[in-house]
């Protein structure tokens, strides 16, 4: 097991290298210069100043040199200064925003897991019963209603309408956490419920389940003892990348609820051609994802010993 983890971590290095190289190449091949200011009221920068800036950021050097410089600095944890937020380094910005996104993401994930998985199990046990339909309904709602619509809906109903929540957004007190958590968590909740249900249904049809039943095991212990272990494998696969996606923030939810997280950079950095920020969030996402997948694979091997860890 330890060897397995080690191998995976060693493998992470070439993976990250490949990720960074692909991103670097595509990013530089995409039309649009990062040298122009991003602010809405800003006018374009004159050519001389552009050259100055290019020199400052090392954009005047050949691409392969730029890439090597990037690698050298990145190894020391230095991703450079953001082209948009010119007075902050990318590391500073991410150190400030990533924990907030992670916090919100984990709360949303917790909501999704705690409600979604039991809902899926109940639905599978009561196939075609009311709970099953409820599960279908919630799952459909979670996925078919995008989080930006949900966000506005929640604000209109709970802030302006009922007045249960005092503010439309912010990140000051736990009260501010409620609505963004729901808006962000409902989608994953729906997905998890669906996956759990269908995989549980699948497992309960397997022959060994029937064998277990034939052996006289009661429905409850059948479900908990046998089906659960196997039925949770597919949702588990999803949980890894889901954590990575939800834990790094959502552009819409964070913008609409004024959550000071990193979600907006996934759209903004690309639109602004903020090269250092793009590289940093791609790598951060890549590492986070790899770690989550590693965790998932470990859980896999625990739940299903037949899967060999290679």
């Amino acid at each position: 097991m330890g060897q397995f983890i080690l191998r995976r971590l060693v493998w992470l290095v070439p993976t990250l290298l490949a990720i960074s190289l692909v991103t670097f190449v595509v990013m530089h091949a995409t039309p649009g210069s990062p040298l122009q200011p991003m602010a809405a009221n800003a006018n374009p920068l004159p050519p001389a100043a552009q050259q100055n800036l290019a020199r400052k950021w090392g954009l005047d050097k050949p691409l392969h040199i730029q890439y090597l410089t990037f690698l050298k600095n990145a190894l020391r944890g230095d991703f450079g200064t953001s082209y948009v937020y010119k007075t902050s380094t990318v590391t500073e910005i991410l150190a400030r925003t990533f924990p907030v996104s992670l916090h919100l993401g984990l709360m949303a994930l917790l909501l999704a897991v705690c409600v979604g998985i039991p809902l899926g199990i109940l639905a599978a046990v009561n196939q075609n019963g009311p709970i099953d339909y409820l599960c279908s309904f919630v799952a459909t709602l979670g996925v078919a209603v995008p989080n930006f619509v949900l966000a506005i809906f929640l604000i209109v109903v709970f802030v302006l309408g009922a007045g249960v929540i005092p503010r439309t957004g912010g990140w000051n007190s736990p009260v501010d956490w409620i609505l963004p958590t729901i808006a962000l968590g409902l989608g994953p909740l729906g997905i998890l419920a669906r996956y759990t249900r269908s995989s549980m249904v699948e497992v309960m049809r397997q022959d060994y389940m029937r064998t277990a039943q034939a052996k006289g095991l009661g429905p409850r212990s059948v479900v908990l003892g046998h089906a659960l272990k196997n039925g949770l494998l597919p949702p588990l696969t999803i949980l890894g990348p889901m954590t990575a996606a939800v834990g790094t923030g959502s552009f819409f939810v964070e913008t609409l609820f004024r959550v000071p997280g990193m979600g907006r950079f996934f759209a903004e950095s690309m639109l602004a051609r903020d090269y250092p920020m793009i590289m940093a969030i791609i790598l951060l996402y890549g590492i986070f994802l790899a770690v989550m997948n590693l965790v998932v694979d470990l859980c896999y091997s625990v739940l299903d010993p037949r899967i060999r860890l290679t």
Binding site: I19, P31, M270, I281
Partner: peptide
Amino acid sequence: EVMYAFPQLLFVILIMAA
């Protein structure tokens, strides 16, 4: 794994921009 590590939104914008 390499392909997977790209955040979808960012990559879609990248491709559409290109």
